[in-house]
Structure formats: C-alpha cells, structure tokens
Simulated assay, not measured.
Amino acid sequence: MATRERRLAEFDGQGDPEPDQAVQVLCEDHSGTYQLPFPCVFTDGEWRNAETGSMVEARVVGWRLPRTA
C-alpha cells in the first residue's frame, strides 16, 4: 500500500490549477488517501466534478495534471 507521503508527492500541483482546467485530485478522509475516479475543476474556490458540475464533498489534499497512459 502506498504511503501518504508518496501519494502526496505524486499529486504535485502547486497552488490552484488554472480556472476550469480538468485535473486529477487526491482526497483524504479517516480511512486514508484516494484518487477520485473522475476529473475535477477548481472554480470560484470550490472543487467540482468536471463532467457533472457537482461539488466534490471530500477534502482535496492534492492535484495534478492528467496522466496519459
């Protein structure tokens, strides 16, 4: 299992992403860290699902530009 520090290092976005730029986000709760399975945007101080526009109701602790396979 990946350590919290290693996961945070993989989500190396600095500051906030460009408005409406779709990115991958890392969230954290009492169980640990996890990547959301959908792209997100940071708009008007809120994280939102880039596909549906729904607000992300999780604590985002990191972001990165999408990785290509």
Rank of each mutant, 00 (worst) to 15 (best):
M1L: 10
R4G: 06
R4L: 08
E5V: 12
R7A: 11
L8K: 11
L8A: 02
A9P: 08
A9R: 14
G13D: 03
Q14A: 12
G15N: 10
P17Y: 01
P19E: 15
P19G: 07
P19M: 10
Q24T: 06
Q24Y: 04
V25M: 07
L26H: 02
D29A: 05
H30Q: 13
H30R: 12
S31Q: 13
T33N: 05
T33Y: 04
Y34E: 05
Y34N: 01
Q35T: 11
Q35E: 15
L36Q: 06
L36Y: 05
L36V: 11
P37Q: 03
F38V: 13
F38W: 11
F38C: 10
P39G: 07
C40M: 09
T43G: 08
T43P: 05
D44Y: 10
E46D: 13
E46N: 10
E46W: 06
E46V: 09
W47G: 02
R48W: 04
A50Y: 04
A50W: 03
A50L: 08
E51N: 12
E51T: 14
E51P: 02
T52G: 06
M55G: 07
V56L: 09
E57D: 10
E57N: 14
A58D: 12
R59C: 07
V60G: 05
V60W: 02
V61T: 05
V61I: 12
G62C: 08
W63Q: 00
W63E: 00
L65C: 06
R67V: 11
